[in-house]
């Protein structure tokens, strides 16, 4: 009967091997590297303790990167969720038209970020872009969307919101549909008006979904890379440089591996906090069912 004992291990081993080799071990290696000074080429890695971290947090550029990442995340997540919630309540109806609308707003989610970035670069072009034509139509002046430090980060957030709304709306709709109908019937019998019903019933019942989307949104926004790499390369004047782009540049352009790893570890800690928070609250159940 030994074969029966070995079999489960045999079955999980390919997957576990992949995970250990490409996810678990790299995390450990990154933590190790974050405490060393290494330029990728030299055979020696010098142990420097926490020096990379202390240097990092006292550096103006990194502080800016942190700020950019936080502002970008706050903008993207809050606006996406608010707009998606409104759309979900509105579009949560059956019928071909609503099915089509849901499909339409979802479609950007499955398109490559490369294409989305380029499409929006074109739409946001200062001279020939459609967005400025639209503004001019209403008598508003053209905006240098991606080429001015004061608007560049917001422009990137707009792209992320446009891409993310469909996904968020559909999840909200799924959440709305899981709310039992009889609760609304009871509220209607009590003569509760629509807005009150929404605030007192729908919103609390949606809180697990709301919470889930917030956390997922935060985790995703912290990793933003593609749009920056294609649309702005972190500029102008470092105004759109965020975490992952910063790690990428330090690792691959300046070969400061220890430095980049330390930034990676900080990102790991931030993402872990949100992940743990998510699981903690999931276990406690945000709302009674």
């Amino acid at each position: 009967m030994t074969w029966n004992k070995i079999r489960p291990y045999l079955m999980i081993s390919p997957a576990i091997l992949v995970f250990s080799l490409f996810f678990i071990y790299p995390i450990c290696y990154m933590i190790y590297l974050s405490m060393h000074d290494w330029n990728f080429v030299s055979p020696e890695k010098n142990f420097v303790g926490t020096a990379n971290f202390t240097n990092l947090v006292s550096e103006k550029e990194f502080i800016e990167v942190m700020q950019n990442t936080f502002v970008y995340t706050a903008l993207t997540v809050s606006l996406t969720i608010i707009i998606a919630l409104i759309l979900a309540v509105w579009l949560n109806k059956s019928g071909t038209i609503y099915g089509f609308v849901q499909g339409a707003i979802f479609s950007p989610h499955i398109i490559s970020l490369v294409s989305i970035s380029m499409l929006w670069m074109w739409l946001m072009d200062t001279d020939y872009g459609l967005l400025n034509w639209f503004l001019n139509l209403f008598g508003l002046p053209s905006v240098p969307w991606l080429t001015d430090p004061s608007t560049s980060l917001l422009s990137l957030a707009i792209v992320a919101i446009w891409k993310g709304i469909g996904f968020n709306t559909l999840i909200f709709i799924a959440g709305l549909q899981s709310i039992p109908r009889d609760i609304y019937e009871a509220a209607a019998l009590d003569g509760t008006n629509r807005i009150r019903t929404f605030i007192k019933l729908t919103l609390p019942m949606l809180s697990p979904t709301l919470f889930f989307l917030t956390i997922i949104g935060i985790i995703n926004s912290f990793q933003v890379f593609e749009t920056i790499s294609i649309m702005t390369q972190g500029g102008p004047i470092n105004s759109t440089n965020t975490f992952v782009y910063y790690i990428y540049e330090y690792g691959f352009r300046f070969f400061k591996i220890g430095y980049a790893s330390a930034a990676g570890v900080i990102l790991l800690v931030i993402i872990s906090i949100f992940t743990i928070m998510y699981f903690r609250l999931l276990a406690r159940r945000v709302h009674y069912q």
Partner: peptide, 20 residues
């Protein structure tokens, strides 16, 4: 272990994997 992997994005570990 599998669930932890689910939480790790590629954007976080590209550098050590690259070195590997």
């Amino acid at each position: 272990l599998t669930m932890i992997t689910l939480m790790i994005p590629a954007q976080l570990i590209f550098l050590p994997v690259y070195l590997q």
